[in-house]
Each structure stands twice: as C-alpha cells, then as structure tokens.
C-alpha cells in the first residue's frame, strides 16, 4: 500500500491515536443505528420510528427539522410531539454544530466514507468537478416543492431517509438509490454526495451556523505541509483559511458552515495542529 493520509501520525503516535475520532464516530453511528434496530431485530423497543421522527422510551420525541418544515410548508400544522421533537433537534445541533449530524449520526456517511476510502486506496482520480454550492440550490428546491406541489417530493428520493428507513422497515428497491450514491461518490465526484449535493446536510449546516463547538488549527505554526488533513477532509475547502490564514488574520478556528466536525484532521495530523475547541 502506498502513502495514505495519517501514515506519519500512525507511525509516530500509534494507530489508536491516529484513529480515535474515526473510532468514536463509527461507535456513535453504529450505536444510533443499533438503538433503532433493537426493536425490529430483538423486540426491545427503546426507540421507535426512524431518523425522520422517533420516540425514545415513550418520552423523548425527536423530529428532523427539515422534514417537519416541509410538512408545515405543505399546509399542515404539526402535532405537539413533532414540534417539541424538532425543537430539541434544532437546539442540539445548534449547540454542537449542525453537520455533526452528517459525520456522527447519518448512515449515508458510512457509504460515502467507504467510497472516499476506496478512492484513496485505489487511487481513483477520475471524475468531474461540481460546485459545492449546489447543495444550497437543492435545499431551496426541496423547500419549494411542498408549497408549490403540495407533495413532499424530496422524500421520494432522499437517500438519508431511504437508507435509515430501509434498514428498519425494509428496503424494497431503495438500495438502488444508495448504490447510485456510492458509485457516484466512487467514480464521478469525490465526496460528491455529502460534500456537494445533500440538502439535508446543507440544512443542518444552517442550523449549526452559530455553534460554539469547532475544530481549530491552534498549532498551525507547527504545520509541515504534509497535506494529510486536506486529503482526509470531506470538505477540504474549510481547512485552508484556518490553517494558512494567519497572515490574512483568519483562523485558527475553522469557521466554515461546511465543517462536519468529524475530527479526522485531528486524527491524521502528526504535528497535533488541530484541536476540538469550544468558543468561550
């Protein structure tokens, strides 16, 4: 195997330290999935529903704010559990950072991370360039559909709910959509879904716009330009201002909405440049 991002960090600081955020993330992703699957698989109904809307222990409602917004835009006022659930999710991600959902909870991340890993592993460089702003356009489209057509059109294709609902209630042909996302990420556009198109992620990015939790390049003077963080980052454009912006007065905080706080830059950096920080 050739060079891979984090090789130096593994060599100098050990495998575990160079993968600690990845391991935590996978633990969290599978943990959330496992909680949802306890019921269908083992009959232990701790959590019912899906990521779209769920009920935990008959007391804690959680509802996806983007979905509830679409529902409201179609002209139906939601029930109290839906409103409270969406409010809880809003507050949670407003504090922790919106796209924490993308990297720590969303099941599609498992698929797109696999595609990204395979791209690195087999050095797949083919593909097209796409504007990362497309997700905002799509978010606008998603929100325009319910008031214009009265139908929640996005839910007929949304890979996030397709995958999660598929795992819990059965896929039907929904796995084809996930396969399409995987192949698209693998061969067409690097980080093509989560990093360019996904309107769900865009919505969560907006929710977390004012979050005090962020990754910061606090040790940027130690940076030896190995590029590992750029290689591993699902949204590499967020790193540059924080890491190299000292002269321009930018950073060290990664201020971009796009940062998913996945912590992989912290993992792979052998110089300990990055840190998870809470703005005081």
């Amino acid at each position: 195997m050739t060079d891979y991002p984090g090789k130096t960090a593994v060599a100098e600081q050990g495998w575990l330290k160079a993968h600690r955020f990845l391991l935590l993330r996978r633990f969290n992703q599978f943990g959330v999935l496992f909680m949802f699957l306890l019921g269908p698989l083992f009959g232990a109904w701790l959590v019912t529903g899906t990521l779209s809307s769920s009920m935990t222990l008959d007391i804690l409602p959680l509802t996806d704010p983007l979905l509830l917004t679409q529902s409201m835009l179609s002209g139906t006022w939601p029930a109290m559990t839906g409103l409270i659930g969406a409010l809880l999710v809003l507050v949670f991600y407003a504090v922790l950072g919106g796209r924490v959902f993308c990297s720590w909870v969303c099941p599609v991340n498992l698929i797109t991370d696999l595609a990204a890993w395979l791209r690195r592993r087999f050095d797949i460089r083919s593909g097209a360039r796409l504007s990362r702003n497309l997700r905002w356009w799509l978010l606008g489209l998603v929100l325009a559909f319910p008031p214009l057509t009265g139908v929640m059109v996005w839910e007929y294709v949304n890979p996030v709910s397709m995958l999660h609902r598929g795992l819990i209630f059965g896929f039907g042909w929904a796995w084809l959509i996930l396969l399409a996302v995987f192949l698209y990420d693998l061969f067409l556009v690097r980080r093509g879904w989560c990093g360019h198109l996904c309107p769900v992620g865009a919505c969560y990015a907006l929710i977390g716009a004012k979050s005090p939790v962020h990754v910061a390049a606090t040790g940027r003077e130690r940076c030896d330009d190995c590029m590992d963080c750029f290689d591993i980052c699902p949204e590499p454009q967020v790193i540059k201002p924080a890491l190299k912006g000292a002269a321009a007065g930018l950073g060290p905080r990664i201020a971009s909405l796009d940062c998913t706080r996945c912590g992989r830059c912290i993992d792979v950096c052998s110089k300990d440049v990055f840190q998870l920080k809470i703005k005081s």
Partner: peptide, 14 residues
Amino acid sequence: DFDGACIRCGLCVR
C-alpha cells in the same frame, strides 16, 4: 394533503 404532511417516519406503524 396527506402526501405533503406525512414525513414517512413509521411511528404510526410501530
């Protein structure tokens, strides 16, 4: 109206 309002969460089913 149902098609616009339902968020496909499956809570009713459960």
